[in-house]
Design a protein around this nucleic acid. Structure first.
Length: 151
DNA sequence: GCCAACGTTGGC
DNA sequence: GCCAACGTTGGC
């Protein structure tokens, strides 16, 4: 089992939105970055756990945990001309983008802020704490996972 | 709203 | 295949 961090702007899709979904499960659509697409398609599997991270808000940070409940399948929003994420180069015959389904597991009583992640010596190398990191999904090591749960 | 970082595009 | 221009992300 692997660990991940999933970023979302709460004004767009927050952990509360995930909680309110039917079965507290949602697909994770709209990824249009090849590195993240490869994570989704090749690495992220049923049973993996994910920190749910709120970005572009005040303060940014980790707000809870979700679990992968469905392996990668084509992101159909890419071939929906009305979608914000429409990509004419992706087709049902030859899908370019993928998504997984995640299910809500828990919401933390308090947000674990980006600032507090940066302060912790064990998290110095964590991808999300590095400036300029723009991947919406990043891998989390077991050590980082354990450290963050202890905060 | 600003701007640094960085991915993508396209001309050559 | 290089690289400048451009667009987007995301912290502040």
């Amino acid at each position: 089992m692997a660990y991940w961090l999933f970023k979302s702007e709460p004004s767009c899709f927050s952990i509360d939105d995930l909680m309110k979904k039917k079965q507290q499960t949602s697909h994770w659509d709209g990824v249009r970055n090849y590195q993240v697409r490869n994570f989704l398609r090749d690495k992220i599997k049923i049973g993996d756990q994910c920190f749910f991270y709120h970005s572009s808000c005040n303060p940014p940070g980790i707000v809870g945990i979700a679990e992968v409940v469905k392996n990668a399948y084509p992101d159909h929003t890419a071939w929906d001309i009305h979608s914000d994420h429409f990509d004419p180069k992706s087709t049902p015959e030859n899908p370019r983008w993928y998504m997984v389904d995640i299910k809500f597991l828990k919401k933390f009583p308090h947000i674990i802020t980006l600032e507090s992640l940066r302060k912790h010596p064990n998290l110095k190398n964590m991808v999300v704490t590095k400036t300029g990191n723009r991947l919406s999904i990043t891998p989390v090591t077991p050590d980082e996972w354990k450290t963050i749960l202890s905060l």
